[in-house]
Design a protein around this nucleic acid. Structure first.
Lengths: 208, 208
DNA sequence: AACGTAATTGTGCAAGCGTATAATAGGTTC
DNA sequence: GAACCTATTATACGCTTGCACAATTACGTT
């Protein structure tokens, strides 16, 4: 009669934090931030709701940590792709951009997270800071690769070009996220490479 | 002691519906869809919560109506700008694109609505239908204007160009919405016109 | 083997949510 | 001016939410 209390194991602190963040990311991705409730996150992580308060002061803190982790890893992985690519500036740029349209940078889960957090970016100053940092980091990596192209270009033009190229990527992400069935496999990547090449006056399609 | 019951006036059905939609749009714009609660909407519209149920079967219905209204008017107003513009295809295209970066098409409120609804688009099939319809409508208008340019281009290329140009606009909207202070006045419009011109191989900056 | 600590659970609460429904009152009709 | 209709208000209900807190239990230490 005295109810069977749930068995549990002590996991390392890092492991539990990561599990909670992973559960949060999955839920935001699937259903939006509003559905990542404390209870739903705990359930997904195989844990009781009260435990979340032991690792994160508040639910919003957990959401912020999840957003930061996803965004930072996206930039890092794109950069790795660029560094592994060939010799020419065109090849590195094409690899960087192309990675933004292929897994693991762009998989449905991350796209969902990115879209699900968008309105939180506008509302929460702490999240906006995370967004600003990671956005500028990604854009600056992009601008650095653009600067290495063999073309005359002043600083202001490089900035504007980086903003435009980043906008192409973001815009295609969004359309792909909102209407996944409206585009053929690989179509968005092809359009993105072609458009960015046109903006910069170089040919990227075959460079990677 | 017997509480003073709130005075009220009967408004026309259309007027009330519009007022409720306007209140919804304002709230979604300012704080995101999650904060557009029945009570908050009613309060903003100067009405009691119960009345909403008299005009909309459910809260989600009201949100859908608000989204549809905003999206449809954006396309319509961009098109008006194009039709009022000069003779040449370049001038009409530049006017259409330029209008997407200036009021009344792009004001902070609409940007907020657009961002606030993004995750609802992914989740709610009815909202996705609205999005698909209005997105394709806008993109087709764009494609029609692109087709009138004096260049050789087959149907597939026109489609890809329209997708790319639309992505530029969406991406710049999103960055402007997320980080309003990161860009100078008119900077996004300038970047957008320049980038779209590059994608299409025409010069749009001075054409409007 | 006993103990102490902190990780984890279970329970409870106040607030806010969407919605249903009964009561009221402005406007219209005869 | 009485009767009727319905737009509008007021109240209530059941549910979910984030969070607080006390009880428990696994594990490291001695």
């Amino acid at each position: 009669m005295t109810g069977d209390r749930r068995k549990f194991r002590r996991e390392g602190e890092e492991k539990r934090r990561e599990a909670l963040i992973a559960a949060t990311v999955a839920l935001v991705s699937e259903a939006g931030a509003g559905f990542a409730t404390v209870r739903a996150i705990a359930d997904r992580a195989g844990v009781t709701p009260g435990l979340i308060r032991h690792y994160f002061a508040t639910r919003e803190d957990l959401l912020r940590a999840a957003y930061r982790q996803v965004m930072e890893s996206m930039t890092a992985e794109s950069l790795v792709a660029a560094e592994q690519a060939g010799e020419t500036p065109e090849a590195r740029l094409a690899a960087f951009v192309g990675a933004s349209f292929r897994p693991p940078v762009l998989d449905p889960q991350r796209l969902g997270v990115w879209a699900g957090f968008l309105d939180m970016v506008r509302r929460d100053p702490a999240v906006r800071d995370i967004h600003e940092t990671t956005y500028l980091s990604y854009r600056n990596q992009l601008q650095g690769l653009i600067a290495q192209l063999d073309r005359p270009a002043d600083e202001g033009q490089l900035r504007r070009e980086a903003i435009a190229c980043n906008a192409v990527i973001d815009g295609l992400w969004m359309e792909g996220s909102a209407l996944p069935d409206a585009f053929a496999e690989g179509e968005l990547a092809q359009i993105g490479l072609s458009a960015i090449g046109a903006v910069l006056g170089v040919k990227l399609e075959g460079a990677a």
